[in-house]
């Protein structure tokens, strides 16, 4: 129970499921975007959890730690992955909110629905 991987895993799974529940039950675009954000956070947490190793140290080269002791370092790559995916998530959320505002301007509502007879351009 005290294993952080377990806690992280539970947390990640819970976040993803809450997000999925939100996506499945809401029509409101703002809530959809929030739910998707939750799912993304969940999956980021999952990456961190999946690459956790017990008893390793931060991979920072210094006086104490050097290349010879590299075996006791944590893998730095997942951090890079998570950082990248957080940045991408930010971009997606920003664009989605911008689109939402434009949608609101056009239709006067935030509900996602399909209109078939809308005007189209070339």
């Amino acid at each position: 129970m005290n294993n952080p991987v377990f806690l992280f895993g539970i947390g990640a799974f819970a976040l993803m499921m809450i997000g999925l529940y939100g996506v499945l039950t809401h029509k409101n675009i703002f809530r959809l975007i929030l739910s998707l954000g939750l799912m993304e956070t969940g999956v980021n947490l999952f990456i961190v959890a999946a690459s956790y190793w017990d008893g390793v140290r931060a991979p920072i080269l210094g006086k104490i730690f050097n290349v010879k002791t590299a075996d006791s370092y944590a893998d730095p790559l997942p951090q890079a992955l998570v950082l990248t995916s957080i940045v991408i998530g930010l971009g997606v959320t920003a664009l989605a909110l911008a689109l939402m505002i434009k949608y609101r301007e056009g239709t006067g509502t935030l509900e996602m629905e399909d209109k078939r007879e809308e005007e189209v351009e070339e």
Binding site: G42, I47, L99, M112
Partner: peptide, 30 residues
């Protein structure tokens, strides 16, 4: 026109779900 924004948002919802799934798969594989 609104049709474009609507289409983009619909695409975005599904594609975001897809990207979450893909990231989770990457975590498992890695």
């Amino acid at each position: 026109k609104t049709a474009g924004v609507r289409g983009a948002l619909q695409y975005m919802v599904v594609a975001s779900l897809a990207s979450v799934a893909y990231l989770a798969a990457i975590a498992i594989i890695y």
